[in-house]
């Protein structure tokens, strides 16, 4: 049985962590409302641009 030391887990120690500003933006209702609109426009562009 593997234990914590022998289990081949991905080394995440160098993975970038989000800054406080990024974390705040991810929860900001106003900022996220804007991102919501932009993401929907992006989906529409995908649909009109590609084979759909």
């Amino acid at each position: 049985m593997d234990d914590k030391t022998t289990l081949p887990t991905v080394d995440l120690t160098n993975a970038p962590l989000p800054t406080e500003k990024t974390l705040r933006h991810r929860k900001s209702l106003i900022g996220q409302a804007g991102s919501f609109v932009i993401f929907n426009l992006r989906m529409l562009r995908l649909i009109t641009k590609g084979k759909h």
């Binding site: 929860k27 900022g31 992006r42």
Partner: peptide, 14 residues
């Protein structure tokens, strides 16, 4: 231009 990744509350709304 069309390959993007975002993380946040808006993703849940979508």
């Amino acid at each position: 231009k069309d390959t993007r990744g975002e993380l946040g509350l808006h993703g849940h709304w979508v």
